[in-house]
């Protein structure tokens, strides 16, 4: 009788725990899907070809999101131009050259800390370094370089892991045939790791495209009449545009549908880029 009772308690405890954990997971999913539904339901009415391809008009109460959308693409592209070479080179250094000593340990610690720095701090750093000290002004260049710094830890870690994953046997074979370290990197390590590195790049793009804080002080414009023609001009960017529509518009009630439309476009953009990266990573493993 006693043992039967305790068996029942243990069973019900087990059920309760299972239920609790399911609820936690469900709650998380519900939160995410509610947010997506919230954005989609309010944003989808304004989505049209014109919404994508027309610049904002009439104090941003009408028109589309062409200028900030292109601005975000420009910023992302330019920041990747800076992040990819530095990130891949650093990843290569860690994987192929660095030995385990005090210097490399400090370097690794620095990169890990960099990954945990709040994005607004990157913004202020970019303001003082690129905008003021280097004299690039508030511009697409300064904003892109700031975003590049933000994406750097991710890019370095992703490419280091990609290079480390290349089997040692390939390197052994190459060195035993009389290859130099650089020949081995170019002919064996890099080609084998390339697709994984590309995945890292895509994940970095997803990270950079949605950032607001780093670009507010460094090059994002409240409004520009047209697209930026040079990297020294300010640009509109989708995340900042959304912030502006939500807080600083002339007529917030009128801009609300446009705001949700812009959010929807940004969310879809970032989600699809990140999903592509995750899908590519899973396919590799």
């Amino acid at each position: 009788m006693m043992s039967r009772f305790s068996l029942q308690t243990r069973r019900s405890k087990d059920r309760a725990a299972t239920l609790l954990l399911y609820c936690a997971a469900l709650l998380l999913c519900a939160g995410v899907f509610f947010a997506l539904y919230f954005v989609a339901s309010r944003g989808w009415q304004v989505i049209s070809w014109e919404f994508i391809t027309e610049p904002p008009r009439d104090g941003m109460t009408a028109g589309g999101i062409w200028t900030p959308l292109v601005g975000t693409l420009q910023l992302t592209f330019l920041s990747m131009m800076a992040t990819i070479p530095v990130g891949v080179a650093t990843g290569l250094y860690f994987s192929e050259y660095a030995s385990d000593n005090a210097f490399t340990r400090i370097l690794r610690l620095a990169i890990r800390s960099l990954a945990g720095v709040p994005s607004v701090v990157f913004g202020l750093f970019g303001l003082s370094l690129f905008v003021v000290l280097l004299g690039f002004g508030s511009s697409m260049l300064s904003a892109s370089l700031t975003l590049a710094c933000l994406a750097l830890p991710l890019m370095i870690t992703a490419s280091e892991q990609a290079f480390m994953a290349v089997p040692k046997e390939y390197r052994d074979a190459s060195y035993a045939l009389g290859a130099t370290r650089w020949q081995t990197i170019c002919k064996v390590v890099f080609p084998s790791a390339a697709s994984t590195v590309v995945t890292g790049i895509i994940l970095s793009v997803g990270r950079v495209a949605g950032e607001t804080a780093p670009i507010i002080f460094t090059g994002a414009a409240f409004y520009t009449p047209g697209l930026a023609r040079s990297i020294f001009e300010e640009v509109m960017a989708l995340p900042y545009h959304i912030y502006v529509l939500a807080t600083a518009g002339v007529n917030i009630e009128q801009t609300r549908p446009i705001q949700y439309g812009a959010i929807l476009v940004l969310v879809v953009l970032v989600l699809s880029v990140s999903s592509l990266g995750i899908w590519m990573r899973r396919r590799r493993l």
Partner: peptide, 19 residues
């Protein structure tokens, strides 16, 4: 060392062709 390895070839325990 590079010239030496050209004179001394090696075959490993586990077959390791390049991909």
């Amino acid at each position: 060392v590079i010239a030496l390895r050209r004179r001394v070839g090696m075959v490993f325990q586990k077959p390791n062709p390049f991909p």
